[in-house]
Protein backbone atom coordinates (compact mmCIF):
# COMPACT_ATOMS: atom_id res chain seq x y z
CA UNK A 1 0.00 0.00 0.00
CA UNK A 2 2.82 2.33 0.93
CA UNK A 3 4.50 1.94 -2.43
CA UNK A 4 1.27 2.89 -4.19
CA UNK A 5 1.08 6.01 -2.10
CA UNK A 6 4.62 6.79 -3.21
CA UNK A 7 3.69 6.38 -6.86
CA UNK A 8 0.71 8.62 -6.20
CA UNK A 9 2.86 11.29 -4.53
CA UNK A 10 5.58 11.17 -7.18
CA UNK A 11 3.00 11.48 -9.89
CA UNK A 12 1.41 14.43 -8.14
CA UNK A 13 4.75 16.16 -7.91
CA UNK A 14 5.53 15.47 -11.55
CA UNK A 15 2.18 16.77 -12.70
CA UNK A 16 2.58 19.88 -10.60
CA UNK A 17 5.92 20.49 -12.22
CA UNK A 18 4.21 20.61 -15.58
CA UNK A 19 1.21 22.49 -14.23
CA UNK A 20 1.37 24.83 -17.22
CA UNK A 21 0.81 21.94 -19.58
CA UNK A 22 -1.86 20.50 -17.30
CA UNK A 23 -3.71 23.81 -17.15
CA UNK A 24 -3.54 24.15 -20.93
CA UNK A 25 -4.90 20.63 -21.27
CA UNK A 26 -7.76 21.28 -18.87
CA UNK A 27 -8.80 24.50 -20.60
CA UNK A 28 -8.64 22.75 -23.97
CA UNK A 29 -10.81 19.95 -22.60
CA UNK A 30 -13.32 22.53 -21.31
CA UNK A 31 -13.57 24.17 -24.73
CA UNK A 32 -14.15 20.76 -26.31
CA UNK A 33 -16.91 20.11 -23.78
CA UNK A 34 -18.56 23.44 -24.54
CA UNK A 35 -18.40 22.81 -28.30
CA UNK A 36 -19.96 19.35 -27.96
CA UNK A 37 -22.72 20.63 -25.70
CA UNK A 38 -23.45 23.49 -28.10
CA UNK A 39 -23.76 20.92 -30.88
CA UNK A 40 -26.11 18.61 -28.96
CA UNK A 41 -28.24 21.55 -27.84
CA UNK A 42 -28.61 22.62 -31.46
CA UNK A 43 -29.47 19.08 -32.50
CA UNK A 44 -32.03 18.80 -29.70
CA UNK A 45 -33.54 22.16 -30.65
CA UNK A 46 -34.17 20.82 -34.09
CA UNK A 47 -35.54 17.44 -32.99
CA UNK A 48 -36.06 16.66 -29.27
CA UNK A 49 -35.44 13.12 -28.08
CA UNK A 50 -36.90 10.94 -25.38
CA UNK A 51 -33.75 11.29 -23.35
CA UNK A 52 -33.58 14.86 -22.02
CA UNK A 53 -30.80 17.14 -23.25
CA UNK A 54 -29.67 17.76 -19.65
CA UNK A 55 -28.74 14.13 -19.41
CA UNK A 56 -26.56 14.45 -22.54
CA UNK A 57 -24.91 17.57 -21.11
CA UNK A 58 -24.06 15.74 -17.90
CA UNK A 59 -22.80 12.82 -19.97
CA UNK A 60 -20.46 15.08 -21.93
CA UNK A 61 -19.02 16.77 -18.84
CA UNK A 62 -18.36 13.52 -17.04
CA UNK A 63 -16.71 12.12 -20.18
CA UNK A 64 -14.50 15.19 -20.50
CA UNK A 65 -13.65 15.21 -16.80
CA UNK A 66 -12.44 11.62 -16.72
CA UNK A 67 -11.12 11.52 -20.28
CA UNK A 68 -7.58 11.19 -18.99
CA UNK A 69 -8.40 7.79 -17.59
CA UNK A 70 -8.70 6.38 -21.09
CA UNK A 71 -5.30 7.48 -22.38
CA UNK A 72 -2.25 5.28 -22.13
CA UNK A 73 -0.86 6.63 -18.88
CA UNK A 74 2.56 5.18 -18.32
CA UNK A 75 5.21 6.88 -20.47
CA UNK A 76 7.94 4.77 -18.84
CA UNK A 77 6.35 1.55 -19.97
CA UNK A 78 5.70 2.74 -23.53
CA UNK A 79 9.31 3.91 -23.72
CA UNK A 80 10.54 0.59 -22.44
CA UNK A 81 8.52 -1.27 -25.04
CA UNK A 82 9.69 1.02 -27.82
CA UNK A 83 13.34 0.71 -26.94
CA UNK A 84 13.08 -2.98 -26.16
CA UNK A 85 14.25 -2.48 -22.58
CA UNK A 86 11.13 -4.32 -21.49
CA UNK A 87 12.81 -7.63 -22.30
CA UNK A 88 15.12 -7.16 -19.30
CA UNK A 89 12.13 -6.60 -17.07
CA UNK A 90 10.35 -9.61 -18.46
CA UNK A 91 13.27 -11.82 -17.58
CA UNK A 92 13.06 -10.91 -13.91
CA UNK A 93 11.30 -13.38 -11.66
CA UNK A 94 8.65 -10.98 -10.35
CA UNK A 95 5.00 -10.58 -11.14
CA UNK A 96 5.45 -7.91 -13.73
CA UNK A 97 1.81 -7.85 -14.72
CA UNK A 98 0.78 -7.02 -11.19
CA UNK A 99 3.41 -4.35 -10.84
CA UNK A 100 2.41 -2.53 -14.00
CA UNK A 101 -1.29 -3.08 -13.38
CA UNK A 102 -1.22 -1.29 -10.06
CA UNK A 103 1.15 1.32 -11.35
CA UNK A 104 -1.15 2.17 -14.21
CA UNK A 105 -4.09 2.18 -11.80
CA UNK A 106 -2.35 4.71 -9.57
CA UNK A 107 -1.27 6.86 -12.49
CA UNK A 108 -4.73 6.88 -14.02
CA UNK A 109 -6.37 7.70 -10.73
CA UNK A 110 -4.11 10.65 -9.95
CA UNK A 111 -4.04 11.90 -13.53
CA UNK A 112 -7.78 11.91 -13.94
CA UNK A 113 -8.68 13.14 -10.44
CA UNK A 114 -6.40 16.13 -10.77
CA UNK A 115 -8.14 17.09 -13.98
CA UNK A 116 -11.64 16.04 -12.99
CA UNK A 117 -11.90 18.29 -9.93
CA UNK A 118 -11.34 21.63 -11.73
CA UNK A 119 -13.35 20.43 -14.74
CA UNK A 120 -16.36 19.47 -12.62
CA UNK A 121 -16.17 22.71 -10.65
CA UNK A 122 -16.18 24.63 -13.92
CA UNK A 123 -19.02 22.52 -15.28
CA UNK A 124 -21.05 23.14 -12.11
CA UNK A 125 -21.02 26.95 -12.29
CA UNK A 126 -22.13 27.23 -15.92
CA UNK A 127 -25.59 28.64 -16.75
CA UNK A 128 -28.56 26.31 -16.74
CA UNK A 129 -28.80 24.10 -19.79
CA UNK A 130 -25.01 23.99 -19.97
CA UNK A 131 -24.13 22.95 -16.47
CA UNK A 132 -23.59 19.42 -15.25
CA UNK A 133 -26.72 17.98 -13.67
CA UNK A 134 -27.00 16.69 -10.10
CA UNK A 135 -27.04 12.92 -9.65
CA UNK A 136 -30.46 11.33 -10.00
CA UNK A 137 -30.35 10.16 -6.39
CA UNK A 138 -27.89 9.70 -3.57
CA UNK A 139 -27.70 5.91 -4.11
CA UNK A 140 -27.24 6.66 -7.81
CA UNK A 141 -24.21 8.82 -6.97
CA UNK A 142 -22.72 6.19 -4.68
CA UNK A 143 -23.31 3.44 -7.21
CA UNK A 144 -21.85 5.66 -9.91
CA UNK A 145 -18.66 6.13 -7.89
CA UNK A 146 -18.45 2.39 -7.26
CA UNK A 147 -18.91 1.77 -10.98
CA UNK A 148 -16.21 4.35 -11.76
CA UNK A 149 -13.81 2.51 -9.47
CA UNK A 150 -14.63 -0.73 -11.25
CA UNK A 151 -14.19 1.09 -14.56
CA UNK A 152 -10.73 2.12 -13.43
CA UNK A 153 -9.87 -1.50 -12.60
CA UNK A 154 -11.18 -2.49 -15.99
CA UNK A 155 -9.35 0.16 -18.02
CA UNK A 156 -6.03 -0.72 -16.40
CA UNK A 157 -6.62 -4.31 -17.43
CA UNK A 158 -7.36 -3.16 -20.99
CA UNK A 159 -4.22 -1.04 -21.04
CA UNK A 160 -2.10 -3.97 -19.91
CA UNK A 161 -3.58 -6.08 -22.69
CA UNK A 162 -2.80 -3.36 -25.22
CA UNK A 163 0.74 -3.22 -23.91
CA UNK A 164 0.93 -6.99 -24.08
CA UNK A 165 0.04 -6.85 -27.76
CA UNK A 166 2.39 -3.99 -28.59
CA UNK A 167 5.24 -5.88 -26.97
CA UNK A 168 4.91 -8.43 -29.75
CA UNK A 169 4.99 -6.02 -32.66
CA UNK A 170 8.10 -4.19 -33.70
CA UNK A 171 6.38 -0.93 -34.46
CA UNK A 172 3.50 -0.31 -32.14
CA UNK A 173 2.21 3.06 -33.27
CA UNK A 174 -0.32 1.70 -35.76
CA UNK A 175 -1.81 -0.85 -33.38
CA UNK A 176 -1.81 1.69 -30.58
CA UNK A 177 -3.64 4.28 -32.66
CA UNK A 178 -6.25 1.74 -33.70
CA UNK A 179 -6.85 0.55 -30.13
CA UNK A 180 -7.10 4.15 -28.93
CA UNK A 181 -9.73 4.91 -31.54
CA UNK A 182 -11.71 1.83 -30.59
CA UNK A 183 -11.51 3.04 -27.01
CA UNK A 184 -12.66 6.63 -27.64
CA UNK A 185 -15.46 5.58 -29.98
CA UNK A 186 -16.86 2.71 -27.93
CA UNK A 187 -16.46 4.55 -24.62
CA UNK A 188 -18.79 7.24 -25.79
CA UNK A 189 -16.18 9.96 -26.00
CA UNK A 190 -16.72 10.89 -29.65
CA UNK A 191 -20.50 10.51 -29.42
CA UNK A 192 -22.36 9.63 -26.19
CA UNK A 193 -23.31 5.97 -26.31
CA UNK A 194 -26.81 7.05 -25.29
CA UNK A 195 -27.17 8.66 -28.73
CA UNK A 196 -26.17 5.54 -30.63
CA UNK A 197 -29.08 3.71 -32.31
CA UNK A 198 -31.08 1.94 -29.61
CA UNK A 199 -30.55 -1.46 -31.18
CA UNK A 200 -26.75 -0.95 -31.20
CA UNK A 201 -26.76 0.13 -27.59
CA UNK A 202 -28.00 -3.28 -26.47
CA UNK A 203 -24.74 -4.78 -27.71
CA UNK A 204 -22.30 -1.91 -27.17
CA UNK A 205 -23.19 -1.43 -23.50
CA UNK A 206 -22.17 -5.03 -22.89
CA UNK A 207 -18.68 -4.56 -24.38
CA UNK A 208 -15.77 -3.94 -22.02
CA UNK A 209 -15.25 -0.38 -23.27
CA UNK A 210 -18.70 0.66 -22.14
CA UNK A 211 -17.80 -0.40 -18.58
CA UNK A 212 -15.19 2.34 -18.18
CA UNK A 213 -17.19 5.55 -18.24
CA UNK A 214 -20.54 4.86 -19.84
CA UNK A 215 -21.83 2.56 -17.10
CA UNK A 216 -20.85 4.90 -14.22
CA UNK A 217 -22.34 7.90 -16.04
CA UNK A 218 -25.61 6.09 -16.68
CA UNK A 219 -25.88 5.19 -13.00
CA UNK A 220 -25.17 8.80 -12.06
CA UNK A 221 -27.72 10.28 -14.47
CA UNK A 222 -30.29 7.62 -13.68
CA UNK A 223 -30.51 6.16 -17.17
CA UNK A 224 -29.83 2.91 -15.40
CA UNK A 225 -32.39 2.57 -12.65
CA UNK A 226 -31.22 1.52 -9.21
CA UNK A 227 -32.79 -1.86 -9.82
CA UNK A 228 -30.42 -2.36 -12.75
CA UNK A 229 -27.40 -1.68 -10.54
CA UNK A 230 -26.64 -5.27 -9.62
CA UNK A 231 -26.67 -6.33 -13.26
CA UNK A 232 -24.50 -3.35 -14.33
CA UNK A 233 -21.91 -3.85 -11.63
CA UNK A 234 -22.02 -7.58 -12.32
CA UNK A 235 -21.11 -7.02 -15.98
CA UNK A 236 -18.27 -4.73 -14.88
CA UNK A 237 -16.88 -7.27 -12.44
CA UNK A 238 -17.22 -10.01 -15.05
CA UNK A 239 -15.18 -8.08 -17.62
CA UNK A 240 -12.56 -6.95 -15.13
CA UNK A 241 -11.89 -10.49 -13.99
CA UNK A 242 -11.87 -11.85 -17.53
CA UNK A 243 -9.55 -9.12 -18.83
CA UNK A 244 -7.14 -9.45 -15.93
CA UNK A 245 -6.97 -13.20 -16.53
CA UNK A 246 -6.42 -12.72 -20.23
CA UNK A 247 -3.77 -10.05 -19.63
CA UNK A 248 -1.90 -12.18 -17.13
CA UNK A 249 -1.91 -15.06 -19.59
CA UNK A 250 -0.71 -12.78 -22.41
CA UNK A 251 2.15 -11.32 -20.37
CA UNK A 252 3.21 -14.74 -19.14
CA UNK A 253 3.14 -15.97 -22.73
CA UNK A 254 5.30 -13.03 -23.84
CA UNK A 255 7.68 -13.77 -21.01
CA UNK A 256 8.02 -17.41 -22.05
CA UNK A 257 8.54 -16.45 -25.66
CA UNK A 258 11.26 -14.02 -24.71
CA UNK A 259 13.04 -16.54 -22.57
CA UNK A 260 12.88 -19.09 -25.38
CA UNK A 261 14.34 -16.57 -27.78
CA UNK A 262 17.02 -15.80 -25.26
CA UNK A 263 16.10 -12.15 -24.82
Amino acid sequence: MKSYLTVFRLRLRMELQYRGAMLGGIICQMVFGLILIALYRALYASRPQTMPVESVVTYVWLQQAFFRMLLASDPDLTDKIRTGAISYDLCRPVNLYGFYYFRSLALKMTGSLMRAVPMLLFAAVLPAGWRIGLPSSIPGLILGICALALGLLCVSAIENINMGFTMRTLDSRGVQAMLNLLMTLLCGNILPLTLFPDSWQKVITLLPYAQLLDAPIRLYTGVYALSDAVRVLGVQVFWTILLVFFGTWLWRHNQKRLILQGG
Partner: peptide
Amino acid sequence: KSVELVNAVTYGGRS
Protein backbone atom coordinates in the same frame (compact mmCIF):
# COMPACT_ATOMS: atom_id res chain seq x y z
CA LYS B 1 4.52 25.04 -21.60
CA SER B 2 0.76 25.40 -22.15
CA VAL B 3 0.95 24.40 -25.80
CA GLU B 4 -2.16 22.25 -25.41
CA LEU B 5 -4.15 25.43 -25.03
CA VAL B 6 -3.73 26.09 -28.75
CA ASN B 7 -5.39 22.76 -29.49
CA ALA B 8 -8.64 24.38 -28.39
CA VAL B 9 -8.65 26.47 -31.58
CA THR B 10 -6.97 23.99 -33.94
CA TYR B 11 -8.49 20.61 -33.11
CA GLY B 12 -11.38 22.34 -31.36
CA GLY B 13 -12.02 24.35 -34.51
CA ARG B 14 -11.95 21.22 -36.62
CA SER B 15 -14.41 19.45 -34.32
